Simulated assay, not measured.
Amino acid sequence: MVRFKNRYVTIEILSPMIPDNKPLSLKSKIFHDTLVDKIQQLHGDFGVAAVKTGLMTKYCNENTRIAIIRSRHGPHRFVTSSLPFITKLGKLDVSLRTLHVGATLKHSFKFIQKHQRAYLDSMWATLKTDDERKALEAAVMDFTKADVKINIETLG
Rank of each mutant, 00 (worst) to 15 (best):
A103M: 09
E137R: 14
F4G: 00
R65A: 09
D45Q: 08
V94D: 03
D131Q: 14
S25A: 11
K91S: 12
D37A: 13
C60V: 15
N151K: 12
D37R: 14
Y59E: 05
A135Y: 13
E137G: 08
L24N: 04
L96C: 03
R77V: 04
I11S: 01
H107P: 00
T129Q: 10
L55K: 05
F46C: 01
K114F: 03
A50Q: 13
I18F: 03
T80F: 01
V79T: 06
Q41G: 00
R72C: 08
T126A: 15
D20H: 04
V48Q: 07
T154P: 00
R133E: 06
T10W: 00
G74D: 08
D121K: 12
A50N: 11
G156H: 13
F4V: 04
D37C: 02
P16M: 04
W124I: 06
Q41D: 08
F143N: 14
T53Q: 14
T129M: 05
T104W: 09
A139H: 11
Y8G: 06
K5L: 11
L42C: 00
W124F: 14
R3F: 07
M123A: 11
A67G: 10
I30W: 04
A139I: 05
R70Y: 04
L26G: 08
K22F: 04
D33C: 01
V148C: 05
L24E: 04
L92C: 03
G102P: 02
R97H: 08
L42M: 12
I13L: 08
P84K: 02
F46L: 10
V79I: 05
F143G: 11
N61L: 12
K38N: 02
N61Q: 11
Y119N: 08
S28I: 05
K5A: 11
V36S: 00
L96E: 02
D142E: 05
R65P: 10
M1S: 15
M17S: 13
A67T: 15
F143L: 15
V9C: 06
R72G: 08
L24S: 07
L127W: 10
I11G: 01
L105W: 05
H115I: 01
L136Y: 10
Y59P: 02
K22S: 04
R77H: 12
V36G: 00
S82Q: 04
T34G: 02
L83W: 06
H107Q: 09
L55S: 01
I150S: 15
T154H: 13
P84Y: 02
